[in-house]
Amino acid sequence: MNTTNIIAPNREIAIQLQGLTKSYGKVHALRGIDLQVQRGEIFGFLGPNGAGKTTTIRCMLDMIRPDGGKALLLGLDPQVDPVAVQSRTGYLPGEMQYYDNLTSERQLRFFNDMRGGRAEWDYVRHLADHLSLDLHQPIKNLSKGNKQKVGVIQALMHQPELLLLDEPTSGLDPLMQQEVLGLLREANSTGTTIFFSSHIMSEVENLAERVAIIRSGEIVEITQTSRLTRSSINRITIRFKQPVEFTDLVKLPGVEVLAKVDRTSLTLQVTGDMEMLVQILGHLPVLDLETERPSLEEVFLTYYKKNSIRNKEQGA
């Protein structure tokens, strides 16, 4: 498949991918990826492990060469002018590996030198302070989470126009995840376009404005995150101090009963918003409540089920 020159550079669009394909022997890693990300947008790239998220990002930075299709980043073809693309882009790989004998500062100075010394060191310190990272520690002594912080700093430190992040909060504790997401929002507020991959639904919901869902090397959906959130499902187990009447709960739209025990325990699957459910539970003697996020595959299945029902209704 060769779609060279089909897409034309557009100043308003930060990322243009058309018909991107990549195979490793018999394995089709990408089967024709088409997507566009507007400048200044935060775009989530959601998919299970092995779906092709990393391959797509690495194609964008000319680390792997697609078999077909075309990519334009900031209007530039990474295969024709990779240096121009890379100098305006920040990248965080899925797995950060360093020269372990260096300190975080020496490692960051190395990356900065590779960029021609563009980063302001005060800004690097600001990022490190934000993430509570001691720059003088040798990398070999750092935990996985702290290594990830070094990766986040190297991606942000030269204040790029476009950020390509492969699972940016991987390995971080929930508090630090929020700090990183905060830094990304801060970068976005200054005009940086953010494209990040994730297999965690809540992370995408938290940060992205739009989301593309990739599955087995194909984009299956590009939608507003809010729409995906409305379709998202949660599994909730509620235990009550005494037997209660469940009628009001099970009648709620989007609520499906999975199990109930003696009117004292109930497991529900809730699709979309939980506001009404929480309101009703407020009037009941709740002993404890446990929520469980279903796997991405289950989310996809629910999402498709709803969509196919909607399509059928529209067809009828």
């Binding site: 930075l61 240096v83 890379q86 882009t89 990248y91 790989p93 950060m96 590996q97 590779m114």
Partner: peptide, 8 residues
């Protein structure tokens, strides 16, 4: 991977 992602 990361080294080559820099504009060298």
């Amino acid at each position: 991977d990361l080294i080559v992602a820099h504009p060298v």
